Simulated assay, not measured.
Amino acid sequence: MPDSIRHILRAKQHPARAVECPHCGAVAHRPCRSQSRTRIMTQPHPSRISAWVRLTACCPVCQVEPGVPCHLDGRELRDGAVHPRREAEAREVAA
């Protein structure tokens, strides 16, 4: 099935589920799990959302293109974080 149709069918899911979760290791299109792997999370982990944002949107604050981590004064943000404006742009693109 083409990715464009697959994403339309999964419209109820958070778009960050399209990437692998660096926190819990959940594969693409599968829900995040707790660290003990006993509970399925209703929302993706923040690090998964950040990974998705990095792959899909340009950052209007630090002027980087998709795939490049955000930076502040030449240093990468802690723990792979992204600027809030970049996350807002990614949500607009996904909508």
Rank of each mutant, 00 (worst) to 15 (best):
M1K: 09
M1Q: 08
S4A: 15
S4W: 13
I5D: 13
I5W: 10
R6E: 11
I8T: 11
L9Y: 12
L9R: 15
K12F: 12
K12R: 14
K12V: 12
Q13A: 15
Q13P: 05
Q13W: 13
Q13C: 11
H14W: 02
P15V: 04
A16K: 02
R17E: 10
R17G: 00
R17Q: 11
A18H: 02
A18L: 08
V19M: 00
V19I: 09
E20S: 12
C21P: 01
P22W: 07
H23N: 11
A26F: 02
A26H: 07
A26T: 05
V27T: 13
A28R: 05
H29C: 07
H29T: 04
R30M: 06
P31T: 03
C32I: 02
C32E: 03
R33Y: 04
R33E: 11
S36H: 10
S36L: 11
R37V: 11
R39H: 13
I40Y: 01
I40K: 10
M41C: 14
M41G: 07
M41A: 14
M41L: 15
P44G: 09
P44T: 10
H45S: 12
H45N: 11
H45Q: 11
P46L: 12
R48W: 08
R48G: 00
S50P: 04
S50Q: 14
V53D: 04
V53A: 01
R54M: 13
L55M: 13
T56G: 05
T56D: 02
C58F: 03
P60S: 05
P60Y: 05
V61T: 15
V61L: 06
C62R: 01
C62H: 03
C62L: 08
Q63D: 15
Q63I: 11
Q63L: 14
V64Y: 00
V64P: 03
E65Q: 15
P66V: 01
G67A: 02
V68T: 15
C70H: 00
C70V: 04
C70M: 06
C70P: 01
H71S: 13
L72N: 12
D73G: 01
R75H: 11
R75G: 08
E76G: 00
E76I: 09
E76C: 02
G80P: 07
G80M: 05
G80I: 00
G80S: 06
A81Q: 10
A81Y: 00
A81I: 07
V82W: 09
P84H: 00
P84R: 03
P84F: 07
P84S: 01
R85W: 02
R86I: 04
E87H: 07
A90K: 02
R91P: 05
R91E: 08
E92F: 09
E92N: 06
E92R: 15
A94W: 01
A94T: 00
A95I: 00
